[in-house]
């Protein structure tokens, strides 16, 4: 099982994403954007890592989404191969139309706006460890295939534009109906209080990650690759840190993709 971590100019998480994928038992390599796109067909799954592709020119993800490699990626996704977009990767998937993947419906990831008690307390970039609640059923989505509904997973978020917005007022309802909302920001008890700091970026209904209707394409703002080893966790018991390979909660995302490839292959 071989995955491609697609590297655009300005990507900055490709190496740790590949390390996380390998820790889950996937093989893979970093795939530079200007390689012949057809070489992409040789892989079983795809990851678009975080970063600032093309400097977020125009909008985050806008330029990368128009690269030839994305056309090929769409075709491979249409075949049912799994795609995971993390942070800037999520932004690229939204800009390309692969997410939410509903024809004629549009969403965007806008600037973070942190609201507490009706007041804007902060805007823009924010880096913190947060809790996510998995709101899809196990098996619904390639990147969370192994995760039970309602499970809580800790990992860091670090972005300036992760606030999911839409001009179509029916979109969120549709996403809910189609079970496309995979992750929501929540507190340590699993409550999705719609207020900063639980809702870290102002995203509608605390949405942190969504999948396409088919479930094989997942986009999420937080970074599972930075939570794939126990030693990466804040305030972790030093005993857990001493075992270099003890998994962190984020590894489940990569193990899920592996399982999805096994099952769908």
């Amino acid at each position: 099982m071989k995955v491609a971590v697609i590297q655009f100019p300005g990507s900055n998480c490709e190496h740790e994403t590949l390390v996380a994928a390998r820790s889950a038992g996937l093989n893979g390599e970093i795939f530079r954007w200007n390689r012949p796109a057809e070489e992409l067909c040789d892989f079983d799954g795809y990851m678009i890592p975080g970063g600032f592709s093309y400097q977020d020119r125009l909008r985050a993800g806008a330029i990368a989404s128009k690269e030839p490699v994305m056309e090929t990626l769409k075709e491979e996704a249409d075949e049912g191969k799994p795609v995971l977009g993390i942070c800037n990767g999520f932004q690229i998937l939204v800009e390309s139309g692969m997410l939410p993947g509903l024809d004629g419906v549009d969403a965007a990831l806008a600037q973070n706006v942190m609201v507490t008690k009706g007041e804007i307390v902060r805007r823009g970039f924010y880096c913190a460890w947060i809790s996510l609640r998995h709101d899809a059923v196990a098996g619904r989505c390639s990147g969370s295939y192994l995760i039970d509904k309602g499970s809580l997973i800790d990992m860091p978020m670090a972005h300036a534009e992760g606030n999911l917005v839409t001009a179509d007022e029916n979109l969120i309802e549709k996403l809910n109906e189609e079970n496309q909302i995979v992750f929501r920001y929540c507190d340590t008890g699993g409550e999705t209080k719609n207020e900063f700091p639980v809702n870290v970026n102002g995203s509608v209904e605390n949405i942190a990650g969504i999948c396409n209707p088919e479930g094989n394409v997942l986009g999420m703002m937080p970074h599972p690759e930075r939570s794939s080893f126990a030693w990466q966790l804040p305030f972790v018991d030093p005993a857990a840190r001493r075992q270099i390979d003890t998994p962190g909660p984020g590894r489940l995302i990569f193990e899920s993709m592996k399982r999805y490839i096994e099952v769908s292959g």
């Binding site: 740790e16 823009g124 970039f125 880096c127 670090a158 970074h223 930075r226 804040p234 305030f235």
Partner: peptide, 17 residues
């Protein structure tokens, strides 16, 4: 909180801890 203290995935103890 404005700084990405986690990128590269190598962070063990971050600012504030």
């Amino acid at each position: 909180r404005y700084y990405d203290t986690e990128v590269q995935g190598n962070t063990v103890i971050r600012p504030g801890e």
